[in-house]
Amino acid sequence: MKSFTFTIKDKNGLHARPAGVISATSKGFLAKITIKCKEKEADGKRLLSVMALGAKCGQALEFEIEGKDEEEALSALKSVCEEKLGNDI
């Protein structure tokens, strides 16, 4: 299993657009992708599950990725996070 933690910098938090990109990206991999935030847990491939985390600016998302393409999934999700949630705008 691979994992990484990403702290949200976008002031709007994990809203529809970044959640959409995360779920669409996750769907492209075989690996099981779980995202944790505080006490909540989401299936990374399900848009509404990811949105329901209600993750806000400053909160940490913990990604857990398990499967044979976990390496590729990890790097894709890391760059999606940087691009969509990494800017303080």
Binding site: N12, H15, A16, L48, M51, A52, G54
Partner: peptide
């Protein structure tokens, strides 16, 4: 889910 911002609902 009902966003705090009131603009999105699932």
């Amino acid at each position: 889910n009902a966003f705090d911002t009131g603009h999105a609902y699932s």
